[in-house]
Design a protein around this nucleic acid. Structure first.
Length: 803
RNA sequence: GCGGAUGUGGCGGAAUUGGUAUACGCGCAUGGCUUAGGACCAUGUGGGCAUGUCCCGUGGAGGUUCGAGUCCUCUCAUCCGCACCA
């Protein structure tokens, strides 16, 4: 049997698709739109990864399926090209990042076209293109006008290896997400984006999204909203007050001391002269960069300030301590410690012999609870509140304090504002001018884009200054609002900037009047299906939602959520069960696979290897199965096309319609693996039939098309068609035929299968029972027993319950 | 510690959502194609023995049900987030 030649037909059809511009989305077509997006790649020097192929094949299958279902499909791609890897490689190679980016993009584009992805290449965008980043800068300035972009001098996460500041989201386990170096804290002037302003909206919006639950949970936890109270403690001997945040006002009577963070502004003031040396030493120690303690294993430490706080209800004097287990970055940087009911406070109190006052007992067990006791219960030792439940006490105690002006309700978030400046070269320049007289002046819109200047040497300085600071002719500029000379902002934007709005640009990628065309937005937005990796669950996917919400608030985009439906891909693991990496030598290069078995077989394999969202290890010998499947498809059509009959085999017809239903539903639900297995089952049956109708062969080819588009086009041509099948109608199934099909029903005795019956659907229970009792094997198991009950699920199952 | 998943043949996995467990594919075995085969085709392939349309079987132990891979309780293992967040 001659097997087919993927090389020849794949390039033939790829060329034809491109020449005919067949995947161009029409802004005019009256058909209903579908916007199918995948996360555009970072064009690294390593080329396309089999993980990319999995994501892009899935979105391609969906796009091709929907085109055949009659939708006007927008399926674009582009390049998320700013960022450190390119810059680092360019430095090493001694070339310009822009040159390297162009090379990488060319390779990626070629690789993606070689996979047969049905992108609308007219809409390709590149975040490093000045025509693109002009609008990234423009959006930044809108955010500046809205008060969402601001400068701050704060300690931020600094990567000593990448020599730049990082956002909170980029620090994993205290290490730089990029290079794994231990992150340090470094106080610097920063540009920040006020994402916290949208914390509640970002939280609420999650409710309406069709996203994987784990991604929603991740974002929910990252935002980390907690409701509680800010309570003021007086400071003995002064008129000052110390504010603490707590989610447990019910434990107020159990507060036996107060702790402030070493970075708390009142530390010096609170420290009495005798304690000054000890406190100063402790604070200095706490400032050292190695303060991160991932597992909380470090023993608690702290030092007494010598001063006392006044308990707001009992007026007791309780000691104020300094300890680094209280973080300045959360709440007010000070807590009331309730050792009886908090593990951390308990450990601290034990170590320093501080008093422990129990104020909650478990509701049921009257006796002692082991401390610290975190659970629910009844209040004790709290004058005026004893006997209340925890929830009641929370409300009542807070109410009492509120009346006295000593507390207010408060909400805290774990989410921090987004550190938005980087001290590196290869990013969008932040379009701001600093004038001695006028202060911070935005670059006027007419002067955008602020182009990244060409530099011979653009290595990071490591001083906290961007390398751009050395380009004097670029830095020194006339102030837009006064006649003086001023200086440009030299920090650049983080890698995430360009990807925080790119789905908006695709709807009108060449529009020059604004960041995007309002009419095109009305036509195409929002994104209907978004496909990508879950490693961006709290990075890109959170930033993107934030920008969309900010732009929506400014009246610039119609919706306040960008992606209605999101599907996260599972990793493609190396054949050895380890993550693919160059150092392990287990990386599979898609180019090699294409040479060996063809792009169609690779597409089919990656869709078939397991559930789309599951991480599955690569298996080279399994790919053969996908190729064999295509070979058999080829042989089937090639040998049967000429002598196809008009008559329909009854069994084939029924199975064909069942398969159409199954493949349609599976494809829509991202269950690509079962869609393909359905086609395989059909093939197994159909292969052995001497006669097949042309209609059947055509339906099979059409169903194959989204998964293996090249071979499908070629077979379609062999079936006598001259036009591409890209816009051919997806086969439909006959509901009536399926409903009439005979059913095979198991006959059980006491839940164990003892026989099978075949009959037309809808026959009566009596009839089924009669025929079931006639089966010898059933009779054997009924003999000498009493039938106490008969369970009949129409057309599904019959079960005799006997004694 | 908190949160979220996931455990089914030698392997990847399927199971109409409580109704015939192991579809489909890989691998393996036997045979064929009368040289070979990392090609192709056919058949077989969860375990057990008394080889019967018999018994057992979806990480483990209980439970609910006529009926459980699916629901409940406990438990073990693995993976992924977050992590001194008051």
């Amino acid at each position: 049997m001659p097997s087919y030649d993927p090389k020849a037909i794949e390039s033939k059809w790829q060329k034809r698709w491109l020449d005919e511009n067949i995947f161009a989305a029409s802004d005019q077509a009256p058909k209903k739109k579908m916007y199918i997006l995948d996360m555009f790649p970072y064009p690294s020097g390593d080329g396309l990864h089999v993980g990319h192929v999995k994501i892009y094949t899935a979105s391609d299958v969906v796009s091709r399926y929907l085109r055949m279902k009659g939708f006007n499909v927008l399926h674009p791609t582009g390049w998320d090209a700013f960022g450190l890897p390119t810059e680092n490689t360019a430095i090493k190679k001694g070339i310009q990042p822009s040159v390297l980016t162009a090379q990488n993009v060319t390779r990626f584009r070629q690789q993606m076209q070689q996979m047969g992805f049905s992108y609308d290449w007219n809409r390709e965008v590149n975040t490093t293109d000045p025509e693109y980043y002009k609008w990234t800068q423009w959006i930044f300035l809108r955010m500046f006008q809205m008060g969402l972009a601001y400068q701050a001098h704060i300690p931020i996460n600094w990567c000593p290896s990448c020599k730049t500041g990082l956002a909170n989201e980029e620090v994993i386990d205290g290490k730089c997400d990029r290079c794994g170096t231990q992150v340090e804290e470094k106080p610097m002037r920063q540009w920040m984006l006020k994402i916290t302003k949208y914390a509640d909206q970002l939280l609420e919006g999650l409710g309406g999204l069709d996203w994987p639950k784990f991604v929603l949970d991740l974002q929910h936890n990252w935002i980390g909203r907690s409701e509680g109270a800010e309570i003021s403690f007086g400071i003995d001997g002064t008129s000052n007050e110390l504010s603490v945040f707590t989610t447990r006002p019910d434990t107020l009577f159990g507060a036996t001391y107060v702790v402030v963070s070493p970075n708390h502004p009142l530390v010096a003031e609170l420290t009495v002269p005798q304690q000054q040396a000890a406190v100063a030493a402790y604070v200095a120690e706490a400032q050292k960069p190695i303060r991160l303690d991932p597992k909380g294993e470090k023993e608690k430490s702290g030092v007494f300030t010598g001063s006392y706080a006044i308990h707001p209800v009992t007026n007791a004097k309780i000691p104020i301590w300094v300890a680094d287990y209280v973080l300045m970055s959360y709440g007010s940087g000070a807590i009331m410690a309730v050792p009886a009911h908090d593990e951390r406070d308990f450990a601290f109190a034990k170590k320093y012999n501080l008093p422990i006052q129990q104020v909650i007992v478990p509701a049921k067990a009257q006796g002692e609870a082991t401390l610290p006791y975190i659970g629910d219960g009844v209040i004790i030792n709290s004058e005026g509140f004893d006997g209340l439940s925890v929830t009641e006490a929370q409300r009542m105690i807070l109410q009492k304090l509120q009346l006295q002006g000593k507390a207010k309700k408060a909400v805290q978030y774990k989410l921090r504002d987004w550190v938005f400046s980087r001290q590196r070269y290869w990013g969008e320049p932040i379009p701001i001018i600093h004038c001695e007289k006028c202060g911070v002046v935005p670059v006027p819109e007419k002067d955008l884009p602020v182009r990244l200047p060409e530099m011979d040497k653009y290595e990071p300085t490591g001083t906290g200054e961007s390398p751009l600071a050395t380009v004097e002719e670029w830095v020194n500029v006339k102030c837009p609002t006064c006649p003086r000379m001023a200086k440009r902002e030299t920090n650049t934007m983080p890698q995430w900037a360009g990807s925080s709005w790119y789905w908006l640009r695709y709807v009108s990628p060449h529009y020059t009047q604004a960041f995007t065309d309002p009419a095109a937005m009305q036509k195409w937005l929002p994104v209907d299906v978004y496909v990508g990796g879950s490693e961006h669950a709290v990075l890109h996917l959170l930033y993107a939602r934030f920008w969309q919400k900010a732009l929506h608030a400014a009246g610039l985009v119609p919706q306040d959520e960008p992606f209605k439906r999101f599907r996260a891909v599972g990793l493609v693991i190396g054949e050895d069960g380890q993550k693919m990496s160059k150092s392990r030598g287990n990386v599979i290069n898609p180019d090699d696979v294409v040479v060996q078995v063809g792009a169609d077989a690779l597409r089919v394999y990656e869709m078939f290897m397991g559930p789309f969202e599951a991480s599955v290890a690569w298996n080279t010998s399994s790919i053969k199965g996908s190729r064999r499947f295509l070979d058999r498809m080829w042989d089937l059509v090639a040998t049967r096309a000429a002598q196809a009959s008009d008559q329909e085999d009854v069994e084939v017809e029924l199975m064909l319609h069942q398969t159409i239903r199954h493949v349609s539903e599976s494809t829509e639900n991202f269950k690509f693996n079962t869609a393909i297995s359905g086609l395989m089952e059909l093939l197994n049956v159909v292969e052995s039939k001497p006669m097949l109708s042309k209609k059947t062969l055509e339906s099979i080819v059409l169903m194959l098309a989204p998964y293996a588009p090249h071979i499908a086009e070629e077979l379609w041509e062999q079936l006598g068609h001259t036009q591409s099948l890209v816009y051919e109608r997806w086969p439909s199934f006959n509901q009536k035929l399926l409903a009439k099909a005979q059913v095979t029903v198991p006959i059980q005795v006491n839940g164990k299968v003892r026989g099978q019956l075949q009959f037309d659907p809808g026959i009566s229970q009596e009839e089924v029972e009669k025929r079931a009792r006639a089966l010898t094997n059933v009779q054997k198991h009924l003999e000498g027993k009493t039938v106490v009950k008969v369970i009949y699920v129409p057309d599904r199952l019959l079960n005799f319950v006997v004694k």
